[in-house]
Computed example of a mutant assay.
Amino acid sequence: MQVVSAAEVARYLTWEGLIKRLHTTFVNGVESPPRHHHAMYRPDGEATMLLMPAWETVGYIGVKMVNVFPQNAQHNLPAISGLYLLSEGKHGQPLACIDGSELTRRRTAAASALAAKALARQDAETLLVVGTGKLAPMVIEAHASVRPIKRVLVWGRSVEKAAAVANAYAERFDTQVVGNLQSAVAQADIVSCVTLSTEPLIKGEWLVPGTHVDLIGAFRPQMRETDAECLRRADVFVDTYAGAKGEAGDILQAIEEGAFRFEDIKADLAEVLLGARPGRTAEDTITLFKSVGASLEDLAAAIEVWEAINE
């Protein structure tokens, strides 16, 4: 069995290759049972273990184990860590143990970029990144691979961390640290949220026509990055219906508040990519993509790494 390091994942998972692989996997589909979600109560706060299996009907088999420790920010450590076990499909023999943290970062950003390719305006040039964790650089790179991003605004609770993200990309883009979210949202063509917030950060009244909102961070029902008005004003799309119904806090809390219905979701990503349902319908439409992560994305990324390394 081959061990694939984080550096190798970063090397072999190109944005073009990964986004193309995700597109194919969403269209073709895989078997992906609901992920196992286990709360773990630690001395310094609650953590989460996720187990995410998926397999092709004829082909690869995989499962990811992820530990989510929000309190790691206090120790300057990543909030998310894990590993992915990829097996061949004929006899079920393990092929590779792949660094799960880098795999997750890249497939998460790539899935949002794939959605933005279908939902964001083609001339989207300004990206607002809300959050400064390990995913922030990934969404910058991924979105820039599908849209002509020229300007990147970065907001974070820590000005120092926001500056670090902005400075890292200052040679490629016109970057700026922003302190006023309302003003920043008004300037953005794409708003990408990558936080572990449990309170709304983005308000619907701030959104301007034509904006695409990308929600990545809230992966549990009690978490959210937007208020209900954002969903009420937008055409809402999700990565999968099952994930949205079980874990998308932005959607579930808006439903509880009576401002949204599950039936108001326009489509999941597969339906848009297949052409079964439309994506963006007008230049001034506000679109919103809510992702909680899907095991098919991990399987697609793991296959892409494995085949790229062994081609």
Rank of each mutant, 00 (worst) to 15 (best):
F262C: 01
E297D: 12
A294F: 12
E160C: 06
L95G: 03
A116Y: 03
L13F: 03
L201N: 07
E311A: 12
Q176W: 02
G217P: 04
D99P: 02
A113N: 06
D123Y: 00
F219A: 06
H75M: 13
V9G: 02
T240Y: 13
P33D: 05
Y169T: 07
T281D: 10
T240S: 14
A254L: 12
L103W: 12
S112F: 11
K150L: 10
S291I: 12
L215H: 02
D264S: 14
A228V: 13
N67E: 14
G59A: 09
G249N: 02
D44A: 13
M1F: 00
L231K: 05
K161T: 14
D174L: 10
E271H: 04
A109T: 11
A113S: 10
R232H: 11
L85N: 09
P148C: 07
R42T: 15
D264W: 12
S101L: 07
S145D: 07
V146H: 06
L83E: 02
F26K: 01
V63E: 11
P53S: 11
S101K: 13
V58Q: 12
V58P: 02
E311K: 02
A79L: 10
E225G: 04
A79D: 14
R277V: 07
I255Y: 04
K90R: 11
S87H: 06
A39P: 08
P209M: 02
L103V: 12
K64G: 09
L135Y: 07
A302M: 07
R11H: 04
D227P: 06
P34S: 06
H75Q: 15
E31T: 10
T132K: 01
G179A: 04
Q93Y: 11
I216A: 05
G179R: 07
E56L: 02
G249K: 04
S291H: 00
G243H: 03
L95R: 02
A184K: 10
F237L: 12
S197A: 10
R106I: 14
I202G: 10
L103H: 07
S145C: 11
H37W: 14
P209N: 05
G17N: 01
G82I: 10
A168D: 14
L128M: 04
P148N: 07
S5F: 00
R106E: 13
R21Q: 13
R11W: 03
V58T: 15
T285I: 08
D227F: 00
D44E: 15
T108M: 01
G59R: 08
L153Y: 05
L181S: 10
K64S: 11
V139H: 15
W15R: 00
V66A: 09
